[in-house]
């Protein structure tokens, strides 16, 4: 408890209860949407106060089950996020190994160039990317949605650091047994990087799942919408919509997968997100 030394017991209690009050404000919007999602559209169209009426229904959720569009978006998001995450993990591990433990001409210079890529924001490259993908006819394809996220240097940076931290005796011992470099990488070193793989994997999956700008301009066919874009398209005619409850249910449906990942892997998610921000 000494880490909190400058704060007395009573002060600590007051601070904590202030945080409790703040958390109510924090969670109220979520609770409100949850409440709306369990209320009938028809009742809501006469006034959203109906949500407090205590008549709950699962109809909005069964409407989602009957709505092939939302499921298609969900599937698209899953394909893109899993594909992009696998790509990033594979390429970052290979490149991290090469940068950290092998010697090749130009290695140091190229590593510095890649590091500079960390400072490039999306808007500096998104217009040219859009043109490149138009030329290659890659818009409205899964590979087209996955690829830009795989160019980010964060994964390479993270894996290089991780490979560097592994004692060099480990692969030198394997080298004495005449193992090939790929075998050393695959059998000896890669299993040691699992914690970093988990962090990078969760970080990339969340980035891909939540990405907005690139799928907005690349996956423009309704069939190719990711869930993020689908939810955006649902809310465009917000004022005219008759289905406020249905819309709320979509928000909940879209939030559930990431919240489940977050609750199960909370520590990993927090490490991954803060690691990605600090670099």
């Amino acid at each position: 408890m000494s880490a909190a030394a400058p704060i007395s017991r009573d002060q600590g209690r007051i601070l904590f209860w202030l945080a409790v009050v703040l958390s109510v404000l924090m969670l109220a919007p979520m609770a409100w949407v949850l409440l709306l999602s369990f209320t009938e559209n028809e009742a809501l169209s006469r006034g959203t106060e109906a949500a407090f009426g205590g008549h709950f229904t699962l109809k909005n959720y069964s409407d989602i089950a009957g709505n092939s569009g939302v499921f298609r978006w969900f599937l698209n998001s899953l394909i893109v996020a899993v594909g992009q995450t696998s790509g990033v993990l594979i390429m970052s591990s290979l490149a991290g190994y090469a940068f950290a433990r092998l010697e090749w001409p130009g290695r140091k210079v190229i590593f510095v160039i890649v590091l500079f890529g960390l400072a490039v924001p999306e808007q500096a490259v998104i217009i040219p990317r859009h043109q490149i993908f138009t030329t290659l006819n890659l818009h409205n394809t899964y590979i087209g949605l996955m690829l830009p996220g795989m160019s980010l240097p964060f994964g390479v940076f993270l894996m290089t650091q991780f490979f560097r931290a592994i004692p060099s005796e480990i692969d030198e011992a394997a080298l004495l047994d005449n193992a090939s470099r790929f075998r050393i990488f695959w059998k000896v070193l890669l299993p040691l990087t699992l914690p970093a793989q988990a962090t990078l994997g969760i970080f990339t999956f969340l980035m891909a799942w939540n990405d907005y700008w690139w799928p907005l301009i690349s996956g423009t066919d309704k069939e190719m919408y990711t869930l993020t874009i689908g939810i955006a398209s649902s809310q465009v005619n917000f004022a005219q919509t008759e289905g406020l409850g249905f819309l709320a249910a979509q928000a909940v449906f879209a939030a559930i997968p990431v919240l489940i990942v977050y609750i199960i892997f909370q520590r990993h998610v927090v490490t991954a997100v803060s690691g990605g921000a600090v670099k």
Binding site: L94, A98, W104, P105, V114, G117, P128, R129, I132, V156
Partner: peptide, 26 residues
């Protein structure tokens, strides 16, 4: 050895095509 660079090649191709080149093209 140049062959060691092969491990980094897949990423470097994507990096060059989708980050470095677009930056200059922009």
């Amino acid at each position: 050895r140049l062959s060691n660079a092969l491990f980094a090649l897949p990423y470097l191709v994507v990096f060059a095509a989708l980050l470095a080149f677009p930056l200059g093209w922009g």
